[in-house]
Amino acid sequence: MITPRRFRLRPDGPVAELRPDELDPATVELVVDGHPQSHVDPVDPTALRHDYVRRLAGVIDAMPPPGAAPLTVLHLGAGALTLARYLQATRPGSHQHVIELEPALVPFVLEALPLPPGTELRVHPGDAAEHVRQLGTELRGRVDLVIADLYRGTTTPAHVRSADFYASVAELLAPGGLLAVNIADDDGLPALRAQLAVLRPLFPGLAVTGPTSTVADARAGNTIVVASRTALPATLLPALRTAGPHPGTVADADDLAPALTGRTP
Rank of each mutant, 00 (worst) to 15 (best):
V169H: 02
V28E: 01
R200I: 02
H95C: 12
M1N: 08
A26C: 04
R229D: 03
L87A: 00
L202H: 12
L172Q: 12
L23I: 00
P14Q: 13
Q37N: 13
H246T: 13
D51E: 15
F7Y: 14
Y151A: 08
L113G: 00
L115M: 13
G118S: 11
L199T: 08
D21P: 07
P258L: 05
T223E: 13
L196C: 09
A163R: 15
A68H: 14
V106M: 04
S228G: 15
E130Q: 15
A62I: 03
V215I: 12
P20T: 06
P117Q: 05
G34R: 09
Q88C: 07
E120Y: 03
V146S: 05
R85N: 06
A194S: 15
V73Y: 03
R229M: 02
L18P: 10
T261V: 04
D51K: 06
F108Q: 12
G58Y: 03
T264V: 14
V146I: 14
D254V: 09
D21F: 06
L173Q: 03
G205L: 08
P11K: 12
A78V: 05
A158G: 05
V160D: 06
F203N: 07
R152G: 10
R91A: 02
L178C: 03
A26L: 13
E171H: 14
A218V: 03
A216N: 08
P201I: 05
R263Q: 13
P66N: 01
R193L: 00
A16C: 09
A220H: 12
R49S: 08
H97G: 04
P201C: 10
A80E: 06
P65E: 08
L179A: 10
L74R: 04
P233C: 02
R54D: 01
P45A: 07
G79R: 05
G177M: 06
G77E: 03
A227S: 13
P175M: 04
E130R: 15
L196G: 04
L172E: 09
L135C: 10
A207S: 08
P204W: 11
P20M: 08
H39Q: 12
P70W: 05
L232Q: 11
D185F: 00
G13F: 00
A216Y: 04
D187M: 06
P201S: 10
L256G: 03
P107K: 05
S162D: 13
L178D: 04
V98Y: 10
I224K: 05
A128G: 09
L87D: 04
E22G: 01
H35A: 12
P114N: 05
L23R: 15
I99E: 01
L56V: 13
V226M: 00
P117N: 01
S162P: 07
